[in-house]
């Protein structure tokens, strides 16, 4: 039974970190119909930015986020301006897969030129230490990551539901032509949303880099996981991303502990197929197709 509880705790803590990485993906799709294949590479890019700040300026990893988030926000806006907004509306979603894949390849290439392919990892006192609670060792990095995920996802939720900009985002999400008719600058909202979606990734990237060795190619292992999370949670749903990420990691960790690590992913994806068969829009997704 100890293994069950250990798997449960690990799943909740690590799931929150995955939710942080997936939040931007679901936000961007929800508002813009863009499937951002580059999300995994943005995570790795954020980890490298933190690595540079720590190695060359001695910045603590969490302090470094104060630099990496605005940097990735600006990068997101630049990517949207350079590539995304030029996509034809009719084939936007399909074309976005190709375009963001190209963006991923470019970023990966630049990172390879600068850093090479050797693995690196982020280090801080909290990376290998843990707190002993009720017979379990809880790693500080995951505890802090969980807290940061709750704070940041909560902030995005408040932004979406308690601000004028959030109303514009939700209006764009629900009915783009109608939003335009009531005077919302849908393109501007989309650009800012893309920037925010990429910026949130900076926080997830830092925790990813502190809990995994990474090199410029590491983003590809992530993207299938992140897409699974946003599909299970419901495209465009922040709460869905959180619940789906935690569910995924809890199922995998408990199955790995109680049964076999080889069955962990199989059981999760079987559950994913089952959920989508019963609820094609995902756990928290809307059942109606969005009007364009």
């Amino acid at each position: 039974m100890t293994n069950f509880y250990a798997g449960l705790i690990d799943g909740v803590l690590t799931g929150a970190v995955y939710a942080l990485m997936a939040a931007g993906l679901t936000l961007i799709f929800g508002v813009m119909d863009i499937i951002n294949i580059a999300q995994g590479v943005f995570v790795v890019l954020a980890a490298y930015l933190n690595y540079v700040l720590a190695a060359h300026f001695g910045l603590d990893l969490f302090v470094g986020i104060l630099v990496t988030m605005p940097t990735l926000f600006l990068l997101g806006i630049a990517v949207d301006w350079a590539f995304i907004r030029r996509l034809p509306v009719r084939d936007r979603t399909t074309m976005s897969i190709l375009v963001t894949y190209a963006v991923a390849i470019i970023i990966e290439g630049v990172l390879t030129v600068i850093f090479g392919v050797n693995y690196v990892q982020l280090h801080g006192w909290y990376v290998t230490r843990s707190i002993h609670l009720l017979g379990f060792y809880l790693p500080y990095i995951y505890v802090f990551g969980f807290g940061m995920a709750v704070v940041l996802l909560g902030a995005i939720y408040l932004m979406l539901y308690r601000t004028r900009f959030g109303r514009s985002v939700r209006a764009s999400l629900q009915n783009r032509p109608a939003a335009r008719l009531v005077g919302i600058n849908v393109d501007r909202v989309a650009t800012l949303t893309f920037g925010i979606g990429v910026a949130v990734t900076a926080a997830g990237g830092m925790v990813f880099g502190a809990t995994n060795s990474f090199n410029p190619n590491s983003g590809y292992d992530l993207i299938s996981r992140l897409l699974s999370i946003v599909i299970l949670g419901g495209l465009g749903s922040m709460a869905g991303a959180m619940v789906a990420a935690i569910s995924m990691l809890v199922v995998e960790d408990v199955v790995a502990s109680m049964w076999s690590p080889l069955w962990a992913e199989v059981v999760f994806f079987a559950a994913l197929v089952l959920v989508l068969a019963l609820r094609p829009q995902g756990l928290f997704g809307r059942s109606f197709a969005r009007a364009q």
């Binding site: 100890t2 293994n3 250990a6 798997g7 690990d10 799943g11 803590l13 690590t14 790693p139 995951y142 809990t211 995994n212 292992d221 992530l222 996981r225 990691l249 995998e252 960790d253 790995a256 502990s257 076999s260 690590p261 080889l262 962990a264 992913e265």
Partner: peptide, 20 residues
Amino acid sequence: KQVFPAEVTDYTSIAGDVAN
């Protein structure tokens, strides 16, 4: 004695079981 998938993105649980 357990075999884990080649493409694991989170080893926390597996390593934790070994530690236990």
